[in-house]
């Protein structure tokens, strides 16, 4: 059964990208375990505003685990201690009375901090823009059923396509590598006949962009897969490697 708990939160505060950050600790009383983690932060902010202080900035939007906007490194886990969810789906029942919860922003050279817990993930945008698409214009398209696609292929593609671009993979990785993110998109499109014609080009340009933006080299620790809220498998990374190497050796 859900109870009300008293907790402390140790939050990273940083006024701007160039400023020095520090931890601040706040006490919160009577937090219902039925509330979500972000609702707990709402309560904290309400408290801070009432005390005349600046509320904590954090990214969030849909609050149902699909937009990928929320982040936060909570007690040593991206998206907190519960599995297969985003921070907005994390509930306070994962914590106990008297706990001190440490909340940090995603930390990676690829994701500079904007303010407090908000980081800049435009690097992901740039990778997507480098080739995360099938080059078709609107219109002039064959009928949707013109190309049958085996169900298991479609399902595998869907598994990869479930990525929400939150960046937990980078945040979890000791190497700050974005391979799982890139692999998910490359895999989805490489598995489908629609994506085949430019599969080689896509793999090469997305990886080149990823490298250029300063993400690390994957060493297959699998931390990304463990923390991925959408269970994207690192098998996709093997597929990305395969696609990339195939493309390069063909050149």
């Amino acid at each position: 059964m859900d109870k009300d708990i008293n907790i402390k939160v140790k939050v990273w505060r940083q006024n701007g990208p160039k400023e020095k950050g520090r931890f601040e600790t706040y006490a919160l009383k009577n937090i219902s375990q039925g509330s979500s983690f972000l609702e707990m932060l709402d309560i904290l902010n309400e408290q801070l505003i009432n005390e005349g202080k600046i509320p904590v900035a954090f990214d969030h939007d849909c609050r149902e685990g699909i937009c990928g906007m929320c982040s936060l490194y909570i007690n040593g886990h991206p998206h907190g201690p519960d599995g297969e969810i985003t921070t907005c789906q994390l509930h306070m029942r994962s914590f106990n009375d008297g706990d001190t919860i440490t909340i940090e922003p995603w930390r990676s050279a690829g994701f500079p901090i904007i303010k407090d817990l908000v980081v800049d993930r435009t690097a992901f945008e740039k990778i997507m823009q480098a080739g995360g698409y099938v080059s078709v214009n609107t219109g002039g398209i064959p009928d949707a059923n013109a190309i049958p696609i085996p169900r298991d292929k479609a399902e595998l593609a869907m598994d990869a396509a479930a990525c929400i671009g939150c960046g937990a993979c980078v945040a979890a990785c000791k190497n700050g590598s974005a391979m799982l993110f890139v692999a998910a998109k490359v895999s989805q499109l490489a598995l489908l006949p629609q994506g085949k014609p430019e599969a080689a080009r896509r793999a090469k340009s997305m990886v080149a962009k990823m490298d250029e933006l300063g993400f690390g080299n994957c060493t297959n620790t699998g931390a990304c897969e463990v923390e991925c809220p959408k269970n994207i498998s690192i098998s996709n990374i093997a597929r990305l490697n395969r696609e990339f190497l195939k493309a390069k050796f063909k050149d």
């Binding site: 040593g76 990676s108 050279a109 000791k174």
Partner: peptide, 23 residues
């Protein structure tokens, strides 16, 4: 390279992600 990619600021809390120690 990986050390640099992790960024200048490190996490204060120790990673609790369950992965093989050797990796």
């Amino acid at each position: 390279q990986n050390w640099i990619a992790r960024g200048r600021n490190r996490y204060a809390s120790k990673s609790k992600t369950q992965v093989a120690w050797s990796s």
